[in-house]
């Protein structure tokens, strides 16, 4: 290594441990050894000056405080997100539950159509004279149903339309109270259910390939009416449908 290269290196990298560099330092008689010592003194001074800046006394503590605060903030944020998700889930459950409740207590669309139909034929609820088998069978026959038996206590029978569905409209009087029974042919609901809607109590029951809809002021007498109509219809043979 030549002196020029040594001194360039010395100025750029005075702490170099390169063997060639150190060998030149120790072997040169042209003043490079003295230059190296002066350079080391300068480096010491430079280092001292750069390190003479005092950091704020509590800097470390403040850094830790910032970190802890940031951590807690993020934990709080995560907790808030969790809370928001839980609240959303709760709201969804409440809405779903309410909808389910509505569905189960209000009945489905068939219940609404049945109530509308009974309101439009409110006169049927005033009927009190029993009708016989000869009057009833043709009504069912029109809906393709051959009755096995005739429901007791029937005071009204007519073939009607309930919404888009063909139905037999019966009114039975159990203990003096009228119970409307609509036998909706060709539309079978999945499960039986009771409902309350617009002041009416009702029950929907799947039967054969259709559905019975019972309506009354209360549910008393529903069981007997359901049994009577079911016994009359079940076993009946579906025949060619007449409109």
């Amino acid at each position: 290594m030549e002196c020029l290269e040594f001194r360039r290196r010395l100025t750029a990298e005075p702490g170099s441990r390169d063997p060639e560099f150190l060998a030149h330092r120790d072997g040169c008689h042209a003043g490079c050894t003295e230059s190296w010592w002066r350079s080391q003194r300068f480096e010491r001074q430079l280092r001292n000056v750069l390190q003479s800046v005092d950091a704020p006394e509590d800097l470390g503590e403040r850094v830790l405080l910032t970190q802890a605060t940031s951590l807690r903030g993020r934990a709080r944020h995560r907790w808030q997100i969790g809370l928001a998700l839980a609240a959303s889930l709760l709201v969804a459950l409440v809405v779903a539950g309410y909808a389910w409740n509505l569905r189960t207590t209000d009945g489905g669309p068939l219940a609404g159509m049945a109530i509308a139909h009974v309101r439009s034929e409110a006169f049927s609820l005033t009927m009190t004279r029993p009708i016989d088998a000869a009057q009833m069978r043709p009504v069912f026959a029109k809906r393709g149903v051959a009755l096995r038996d005739v429901p007791a206590h029937a005071v009204f029978a007519a073939d009607c339309r309930v919404g888009p569905y063909r139905a037999v409209h019966l009114v039975l009087r159990e203990n003096g109270s009228p119970i409307t029974v609509l036998y909706v042919v060709g539309h079978r609901i999945a499960d039986a259910r009771d409902f309350s809607r617009a002041g009416w109590h009702g029950r929907e029951v799947p039967i054969g390939n259709g559905t019975l809809v019972l309506l009354g002021n209360g549910s008393a007498g529903f069981a007997a009416a359901e049994r009577a109509v079911t016994d009359a219809v079940m076993g009946a043979t579906l025949q060619t449908e007449q409109t």
Binding site: L50, Q51, V53, A55, P56, L59, G60, V63, L64, Q67
Partner: peptide, 17 residues
């Protein structure tokens, strides 16, 4: 992290300064 802060916060500050 605590050890890191206590060991190097001063050096970092001087460098930053």
């Amino acid at each position: 992290f605590d050890a890191l802060v206590h060991a190097h916060a001063g050096d970092l500050y001087r460098f930053a300064y």
